[in-house]
Design a protein around this nucleic acid. Structure first.
Lengths: 223, 223
DNA sequence: CAACCTATATTGTCTGACATTCTTGCAATC
DNA sequence: GATTGCAAGAATGTCAGACAATATAGGTTG
C-alpha cells in the first residue's frame, strides 16, 4: 500500500459537526451582520456542550467568519465597504490568476463539470432564489480554483469568498445582475474551454469588476 | 467621538495569551515538524487548563499552524515541497502586488521605518543568528505589506509566511544566502524609495524566486 | 518473526461551578 | 427631561473533574 495514500478515516467529531453547521448558517445569511451569538442559545439549538461549542467558535473566529471580543462574546462581523473592497481586490488577484492557469491545464472531464455547473447557475439565474444563485456560482468558481494547480490559491480564495457571502447574496438580488453574471461567466468558461489563458484572465477580471460594482450598488441602495 | 475609532480596550485573555505563546514557539521552530503536541504536557508547561488550551489549539489549527487529527490530537505539519511551492507561488502573487502598490503610496515616515528595518536585517545578516535574520526580514516585509493600502493582502500574506517559517529559517542558514538576500532587499527598498512601481515589482519578484530556490536547495541538501 | 492481546496514554466530550464583566432597567439628581 | 449612578440579571472566561472511545506500546503466544 503506498504510504502517501492517506486512508485514515476521519470520524466526524462533535466539534467539526458544529463548525460545519455554524459555517453553513453564517454563509446562508441566517444571522444578521453585527448580531451577537449567545453561547447558551447555540448550545441548546445545536445540542452540544459549551466547551465543544467554544472550540467551534474559535475555529470560526480564526477563519474570520465571526468576531470574538473578550467579555462580549462572539458576533457576526459587519463588513464595511472599505473592508469589502480590500477583499474583492485580493480575490481578483487570486481568481484572475486561477482562471489563467486553469485555461492551460484543466482536464476535459473537469471541463465538463465546469460546463454543468454553469448550466446549474443558468437554471438558478432564471429563478428568484438568490441563495441558490450564490451557491451555484460558488460551485463554478470552486471548480476553476480546484483546477488551477495550486491548492493554496484555492484555500485562500475560499476563505475570502466566504467572508463576503453577505454582499454576494445582496448583489445577486439586484435587477438583472444574475443574467449579466451569467453571460460573464459564460465568457470565462469559453475562454477556458478554448485554452486561451489571456482571454480567461481578461474575462475573469471583467466579471469581478462588475461583481464588485454590483456589490457596491446593492450596499448604497440600502444602508 | 467618531464611531470608527475603536477605543475598546482588549484585556488579554488566557486563551489569547496561550495562542500567542504557542504561535511564537512554533514560528521559532521549537517543535520538530511532524512531532505531536500532548495536551497534558502543554497545559502543565503553559499553566492553563485543558479547555483553554484546546480553544487555543483550534485557533492555531484554523491558521494552519498545527494539524489536529481526530483521536490523535495536534501535531506540527510536515510541509512537503509541493505544498511549500504552492505557498511560495501565492506569496509571490501577493508580495509583488504589495511592493508595487507600496512604491506609489508609502508615506515618508514609513519609508524611514523600512530603511531602519533594512539596517536591522543587515546587522542580523552579518551574524550567524538565522532566527534573527528571519525575524528582521519578516519586519521588512511586514512594513511593505502594511503600506500597500490593503489590509487583507497584509493579513493573508502574514498567514502564508507563517506557514513556511520552517523553510525560511533553514534557507537563511545557507552559505551566503543572507548576504544575497540583503542585496535583493536593498533593491526592493530603493525601488520603493524612488516611487518606481514597476521596478519594485520586478525586484520583489526576483527576490522571491531566489528565496524559493534557496528554500528548495536547503530542503534537498538535508532530507 | 509475525500476529495478537492487554495495559496505558491520550483525546473527545460532558457536567458543574464560580469569578469577572457586561447589559439593562430603575431610581436619583441636576 | 436628560444624565448620572447603582443594582440585579445575563453572559462570558476559566477551571476542575470525570468518563468513554480511541490509539499506542509492550509483552505474550503461535
Amino acid at each position: 500500500m503506498p504510504p502517501e495514500l492517506n486512508l485514515r478515516i476521519s470520524p466526524r467529531t462533535v466539534q467539526q459537526e458544529t463548525v460545519g453547521k455554524l459555517r453553513l448558517a453564517i454563509l446562508s445569511g441566517l444571522f444578521e451582520p453585527g448580531s451577537r451569538l449567545i453561547e447558551s442559545q447555540l448550545c441548546a439549538q445545536l445540542g452540544v456542550s459549551r466547551p465543544s461549542l467554544r472550540e467551534a467558535l474559535r475555529s470560526l473566529e480564526a477563519e474570520r467568519l465571526i468576531e470574538i471580543v473578550p467579555n462580549r462574546g462572539p458576533s457576526i462581523p459587519a463588513l464595511s465597504w472599505s473592508e469589502a473592497t480590500a477583499i474583492y481586490e485580493v480575490r481578483e488577484l487570486l481568481e484572475v490568476e486561477a482562471a489563467g492557469r486553469c485555461a492551460t491545464r484543466i482536464p476535459t472531464e473537469q471541463l465538463h463539470e465546469l460546463e454543468k455547473s454553469l448550466a446549474a447557475f443558468e437554471e438558478a439565474a432564471s429563478s428568484n432564489d438568490s441563495l441558490a444563485q450564490v451557491m451555484t456560482a460558488a460551485d463554478f468558481y470552486s471548480i476553476i480554483l480546484a483546477n488551477c494547480g495550486n491548492p493554496i490559491l484555492e484555500e485562500v480564495h475560499r476563505g475570502l469568498v466566504a467572508r463576503i457571502s453577505f454582499f454576494r447574496g445582496r448583489s445577486m438580488s439586484l435587477e438583472g445582475r444574475a443574467q449579466s453574471s451569467l453571460s460573464e461567466m459564460r465568457e470565462i468558461y469559453e475562454s477556458i474551454a478554448a485554452g486561451d489563458e489571456k482571454a480567461a484572465r481578461k474575462a475573469s477580471k471583467r466579471h469581478l469588476l462588475k461583481a464588485k460594482a454590483a456589490a457596491k450598488m446593492s450596499m448604497n441602495s440600502e444602508s
